[in-house]
């Protein structure tokens, strides 16, 4: 078995005195799509923040493609092929669509190539290229955000709550994009609060609760655990 693209070992992180990650162990195989599920407040977004370099861990190790990367800064990680799409609208609302796309070239792919890929895949973005990103609908903004994952050819893609606040039809559309990115060989860690469509595109799934990974396995196996966890074990 090859080296996993992401290997997290006994990771701890805290906000002030409150520990949010309490020893997370997670491994994403190269080329795989892993869905990370769990209730609100389980620590999923914190995990994304720590892995992407936005927040410091208190202890534990992170290996990206076998390289120990702890304490690396988020901008450096982004330049070596870690693409993070954080929760919420991850576009710059006061820049035009085209300007947003131009900024994506910091990750290494030239701006021209990014524009071509994005417009080819989402013709709607081409129609709106001079429009301010903040004035587009939520779905269109997520398309723009996804363009970064699509065009910048990352080694690992971190998706945090892609579906937040979006209508189901649009979520389906976005997950088709995710599937397509996966087909091109990109490894993906995909965080969702509810099972939703995420499990459809996932090869593996993990469930997080109370700052730990409580279950991992194939999507089918994970469902039983999932139901328990969402209900806080009170079922």
């Amino acid at each position: 078995m090859s080296v996993p693209i992401l290997d997290v070992i006994d990771l701890h992180a805290a906000y002030g005195r409150i520990e949010v990650l309490r020893g997370v162990d997670l491994s994403v195989p190269r080329g795989a799509v892993m869905a990370l599920l769990g209730p609100n407040g389980a620590g999923k977004s914190t995990l994304v923040k720590v892995v992407s370099g936005q927040k410091e861990a208190t202890s534990g190790d992170i290996h990206l493609a076998g390289v120990h990367v702890q304490a690396a800064r988020s901008d450096d990680l982004a330049r070596v092929g870690l693409c993070t799409i954080p929760e919420g609208r991850s576009v710059f609302p006061n820049l035009t669509v085209e300007e947003n796309l131009v900024l994506m070239s910091y990750a290494g792919v030239p701006a021209g190539a990014i524009l071509d890929t994005a417009y080819a895949y989402f013709p709607r973005l081409h129609e709106r290229r001079h429009q301010l990103a903040g004035t587009m609908s939520g779905g269109e903004q997520q398309m723009l955000a996804m363009s970064r994952a699509l065009a910048s050819d990352p080694a690992l893609l971190l998706l945090d709550e892609l579906s937040m606040g979006l209508a189901p039809l649009i979520v389906d559309e976005l997950y088709e994009t995710v599937a397509r990115i996966a087909e091109s060989g990109v490894s993906i860690l995909c965080i969702e609060q509810f099972a939703r469509t995420a499990l459809r595109v996932a090869d593996y799934a993990a469930v997080m609760s109370g700052g730990r990974i409580v279950a991992t396995g194939e999507p089918g196996e994970i469902l039983d655990t999932m139901a328990d966890v969402i209900l806080g074990g009170a079922a």
Partner: peptide
């Protein structure tokens, strides 16, 4: 596959 979850979440 998701129906059980749906039921559980909302039950």
């Amino acid at each position: 596959v998701l129906e059980p979850v749906a039921q559980e979440v909302l039950s």
